[in-house]
Write a protein that binds this DNA or RNA. Structure first.
Lengths: 218, 218
DNA sequence: ATAATAACTTAGATGAATCTAACAAATATA
DNA sequence: TATATTTGTTAGATTCATCTAAGTTATTAT
């Protein structure tokens, strides 16, 4: 088994790789808020354990084993988030912090039971895919709302880079997963959009917002 | 806030003090499975933090602050156990290990929500009292079944020193909290008892068992 | 193309929590 | 009471995860 700390490095490497492709020590350092030399020596340690491919001055890459281990931590995180929302009544903006801690528990029964209670979901409350028990994870193919065109009608499928603040903002606009959205206007100069959904007939969304919303074309 | 490790020392000191009154470094060392010199230096550290009264060659005592902190960890442990049993369907023999990990989470909302969902209980699934939010805990006054006499009718109120094994044994005999038990025979030579409960009219319980069962006289 | 900046690495220190070895004090035993 | 045993303490080493300072390599900008 890996330490709490190692699990956090693995998970973060995995997430960064999914967001940006290649991962540099510098990015990892920033994301973890841990200084570079520390990250550096941890990478050597994880390389020893065959979890990371590490070569000086080259981007970091998880090995297959590293990916699997990371995915299993992420699985626990996302199952937990789903449980907290569905069975305990938390809002989607509240669950990340709690899941961040619970993901490190070592208790197969506990996660097994949560999974069962919430009906073996494949996505979490923010629309991110939940890896299966072997660490396999769906490659998702949604597109950013910001990449859609006037006239498109789309379904809100996932939210990325979702901080508390951002999720609370979405709550206040009644923007939740599954929602049907129609694009009415796209402003050239700032990329903002005017969209229609629910009873709101002309809600304006900044580019900052629309690029964090993943949608499925209908 | 205290570290995971410190919390474990505090909790264990509290539990040992409740079981045996005075706590020696040696006992603490054995219970934690941590060598004496390590315990010794941790006691000095906790004394610095005003959580423990420490003097060379004297028994260890928690300060009031130490007791409160310990009780708050124990509160989280016991609330968790109750939640696991009542809301997740675990058996009382399965919950200790999981609660042992969850008790260290730092998330008031999470424990608040569990507490609410299970209706603010004052005892855990093994009959132990749950400290309140300020760290106050009921002094319990049950007596051991092994101290009762022939003819007594009692209600099973709590189980102490409860390992998996012991709890599974109790399951197999259908001995659960709240059960009415009548003492029919007490054997002089080995302290074993013959008791009646449910439909069982003459179940024999060894002294090992009866001294771990706490009861209320009826 | 060279200088400036940013990214990365190495070396060495720190603090937390653990250990073993050796010694000292208290307790039990002969 | 004297000795043996158990309990407790001190000293010093180890491992993990972190840091700062200083040097090296790569990238960017002039």
């Amino acid at each position: 088994m890996h330490s709490y700390t190692e699990e956090n490095y693995l998970k973060t490497l995995f997430n960064l790789a999914n967001e940006k492709g290649e991962v540099s020590p510098n990015e990892l350092s920033k994301r973890l808020a841990i200084k570079m030399p520390t990250v550096n020596s941890m990478m050597k340690k994880l390389a020893e354990k065959k979890l990371v491919h590490y070569e000086s001055y080259k981007p970091l890459r998880l090995t297959e084993k590293g990916k699997r281990e990371a995915a299993l931590v992420i699985r626990k995180h996302r199952l937990t988030e789903m449980f907290l929302v569905q069975k305990m009544g938390f809002g989607w903006e509240q669950v990340h912090e709690i899941a961040e801690q619970i993901e490190h528990l070592h208790s197969p029964y506990f996660f097994e039971k949560m999974d069962e209670m919430i009906g073996y979901p494949t996505i979490d409350p923010h629309g991110s895919p939940i890896p299966d028990k072997t660490g396999k994870i769906d490659g998702v193919h949604y597109e950013k709302l910001s990449d859609c065109k006037i006239g498109d009608t789309v379904k809100l499928a996932a939210v990325i880079h979702s901080t508390d603040e951002f999720l609370k903002f979405l709550n206040s606009r009644e923007l939740h997963l599954g929602l049907k959205i129609k694009i009415k206007v796209v402003e050239k100069f700032d990329g903002s959009m005017v969209v229609a959904y629910n009873k709101n007939n002309a809600e304006s969304l900044s580019h900052m917002v629309s690029e964090r919303l993943l949608v499925e074309k209908l």
